[in-house]
Amino acid sequence: MVSSSMTTTVDQGGGTTIFAIHPDILQTHILTRLDGPTLASAGCTSSQLHALSTEEKLWMDICNHKWPSTNHPRVHKLISTFTAGHRSFFSDSFPTLDPHHRPSQPNPHSSSFTSELIFAVDIHYQDKLIFSRVQEIETLTGWFLCSPFRVDYLCEKEIVPTPVRFECGEDTCRLNLEENLTLSCIVINPTRKRAANVSSLRPILVQRHWLTGEIQLQYTTILAGHQRGRSSEFVQCRMVVTCGRGGEGGELQVREVSLLTEDMDEKNLTGKESLLIFQKAVDSGGRKIGKRGEERESYVCRRKKIKNTGKDFISGYKFLYALGTE
Rank of each mutant, 00 (worst) to 15 (best):
M1N: 04
T9H: 05
T16L: 09
I18M: 06
H22P: 07
H29Q: 01
R33V: 01
R33P: 00
P37D: 09
S47N: 08
L49P: 00
A51N: 11
L52C: 04
T54Y: 06
M60E: 00
D61G: 02
N64E: 07
P68S: 06
N71K: 11
N71I: 01
P73I: 01
R74V: 09
R74L: 06
F89G: 03
S93W: 14
L97V: 13
P99S: 10
S104L: 15
Q105A: 11
P108A: 09
S110C: 14
S111W: 08
F119S: 05
H124M: 09
D127A: 08
K128I: 10
R133C: 00
V134P: 02
Q135F: 11
E136R: 11
T141G: 15
F144I: 13
L145M: 14
L145R: 14
C146L: 15
S147H: 10
F149T: 06
F149L: 08
R150G: 00
L154E: 05
E156F: 12
I159C: 01
I159Q: 03
E167I: 11
E170D: 15
C173R: 02
L175W: 05
E179F: 10
L181A: 01
L183Q: 02
C185N: 09
T191Q: 09
R194Q: 14
A196S: 14
S199W: 02
S200W: 01
L201M: 08
I204V: 10
I204D: 08
V206Q: 03
Q207Y: 12
W210V: 15
Q216G: 08
Q218C: 06
Y219M: 13
T220Y: 07
L223D: 03
R230Q: 13
S231H: 07
V241A: 04
V241K: 00
G247C: 04
G249N: 11
R255Q: 01
T261Y: 04
N268K: 13
T270Q: 13
G271L: 13
E273L: 10
L275T: 13
F278V: 10
K280D: 14
A281L: 10
S284E: 15
G285I: 02
G290H: 08
R292P: 02
E295I: 15
S298M: 12
R302S: 14
R303Y: 04
K305C: 11
K305P: 05
G310T: 07
G310R: 12
F313E: 01
F319S: 01
E326D: 13
